[in-house]
Design a protein around this nucleic acid. Structure first.
Lengths: 339, 339
DNA sequence: CCTATAATTACATACGTATGCAAAAATTAT
DNA sequence: ATAATTTTTGCATACGTATGTAATTATAGG
């Protein structure tokens, strides 16, 4: 009762044509007369035939599969991105095979190897880095790789990020314009390029304005660590403003400030962060934040992949999407602020 | 420079054995002597050989791919579930091909057809329903289907949900025990079995205690609609408690109550909902909610899939996981409440 | 040391489709 | 109407692997 597979051969027999005729009907760009096309379609619908993508992949070398590596689904930014990626790739006729590295060690390499086993036509690596050997391996296998929301040097590697440096700088100038004097920073995971670039941009802008960082703690992109960092940072002689490396941590920071330390946001402390995930707009947080334009990032990612898949061997591209400050209520709004 | 494919044939030549020998070395349960195994492994690592999963799938009929259909990634419950599903399936040697139906029409059927084209060994359908024709199609193709967080009649269809009826009843008893007299309900999308069962359980328990529903509005599982529903429900002669069909809407309900209508939670209005997504525990919401035990739901889903894949043709199973009330601070806590 | 048995191996084939090639049919030009 | 050209078609083969079958080798038993 199970496993009834309908093959092009069976369709061919019913339609009274050859198997290759059936194949040509279903292959775009192949020639088939209207008469046989009709006969084949009729027979196909009668039998419920649909081409086997895997068999097709075998001979054509095109699997129509894109591998996606993603680790931190707790941070809403990533589900959001996955949804957009999947939808846009589906429109192009591709589908997404998802891989989640267990968050222990550097088994990311192992995961990417698994991906390659599926003969994917491209790989998107979100929120994690790639060893240079693996990057080489992908390149020599002719499989384009795009790093999403991480940047990394390496031949043939493409990266799509927001402009984290200038985004961080914007956050600094916003807080300075608000008249803040004691400005703290809660860092993300130190190994992440996004963390690094946001901090560089932030401190560079502070220095440019003659200011200096008042406090710094690491939150590792984790809510719990961010809460602890907040407690340490606000234990004595507290800052009057804090830049948090992403929204996900900022929620924990705000909750800790308000419900644990009894501070008001933004009256006592201004909070600004980075990403603009959906929850940032929820009234409970109403978070002023630097927006990562997920739509554009996804669009660029898909564009690069398609370019590399079609015209193979192209150079890696590094894209940084501009990131505007979204002014809400968690940070004091400078007088006469515009843009 | 691109597309260097290493095949078992090449490994065989380098190792001085036949292609089938190489295959047997990489096939569990096949016989190969230690000597040839060593030779093959040496040659394989020298060439960087890894078996082609797609070719393997062709001949063995096992693609090691599970198709996953999921629509609402904004609701944190689903990213959470995806992560757990993906991880557990990876441990079993399977990988997840993800499909997101564009949220327009009943193109879910089209999406499932696409999934079948990839010769998946099983399908998980989360948060959406399936037409009976498609269910039949999957069954006759020998592909087991598990509905995740939706239940639906149909031969061979398996469902894994929380026990929504008794969960809804628990919510009702919690509010009644808290002394609430005017109890409202904000419904999810009316077409969803989860919505229906939660409401049935809720109103059944109300009636059992001699109470009756004071107000009802539909929120469609959307935050925006839930906000509108809240405004309508609390425009005059407001309820003193409200059960919201899921956490995702409850966040909007609480925000609307607090920041728009100036009501205190739980002093003026008790809010209880369903799911216990991570954000429910965030201090800003501190939401009392009926927990869906995602871990157990995922475990059952994977178990059913594995059973059906191995011993094919099994009957569909309907699993409902018990769902406890997680008491936090958004609803008045009845005196002497335990369990 | 020889036979009986078990383990291993190579050969050949199959999975379902796409595609180069040559034959056949259809179309156009003369 | 015939030749020249284009389009369509069927045949055969290839993609990379697993596996049944038969031949070979290794192991055990006497």
């Amino acid at each position: 009762m199970s496993k009834e597979k309908v093959t092009s051969q069976q369709v061919a027999e019913l339609a009274g044509v050859s198997q290759s005729a059936v194949s040509r009907v279903y292959t775009t760009g192949a020639s088939a007369s209207k008469k046989t096309t009709d006969k084949v379609h009729k027979a196909a619908t009668a039998l419920g035939y649909r081409p086997n993508v895997l068999a097709r992949a075998m001979v054509s070398g095109k699997s129509r599969i894109i591998g996606l590596v993603v680790a931190y689904l707790e941070n809403q930014f990533y589900p959001d991105a996955i949804e957009k990626l999947s939808t846009q790739l589906q429109e192009k006729g591709y589908h997404v095979l998802i891989f989640m590295p267990s968050k222990t060690a550097e088994n990311i390499d192992a995961v990417v190897e698994e991906i390659l086993d599926y003969q994917v036509e491209g790989i998107i690596v979100a929120s994690v880095a790639l060893s240079s050997q693996l990057a080489d391996r992908c390149r020599s296998a002719g499989v384009p790789v795009v790093l999403f929301n991480r940047s990394q040097d390496g031949e043939g590697l493409s990266c799509v990020t927001s402009d984290n440096f200038s985004g961080g700088a914007k956050a600094a100038r916003f807080l300075l314009a608000g008249g803040h004097k004691k400005i703290g920073y809660i860092a993300g995971w130190e190994g992440a390029s996004t963390q690094r670039d946001r901090e560089f941009g932030f401190t560079a802008a502070l220095q440019q304005e003659g200011a200096t960082l008042y406090a710094r703690e690491a939150g590792d992109f984790s809510m719990e660590k961010a809460s602890e960092a907040t407690r340490r940072m606000f234990s004595d002689d507290r800052p009057d403003a804090v830049f948090v490396a992403n929204d996900h941590m900022a929620f924990a920071v705000m909750d800790t400030l308000r419900f644990e330390l009894g501070l008001r946001v933004p009256e006592d402390v201004s909070v600004i962060s980075y990403d603009d995930v959906p929850a940032a707009a929820w009234p409970a947080y109403n978070l002023t934040t630097v927006r990562q334009r997920a739509n554009q990032m996804v669009r660029e990612t898909v564009r690069i992949l398609m370019e590399q898949i079609l015209g193979d061997g192209l150079q890696g591209q590094q894209i940084a999407i501009g990131s505007p400050v979204i002014v809400r209520g968690s940070a004091r709004i400078p007088e006469g602020w515009n843009s």
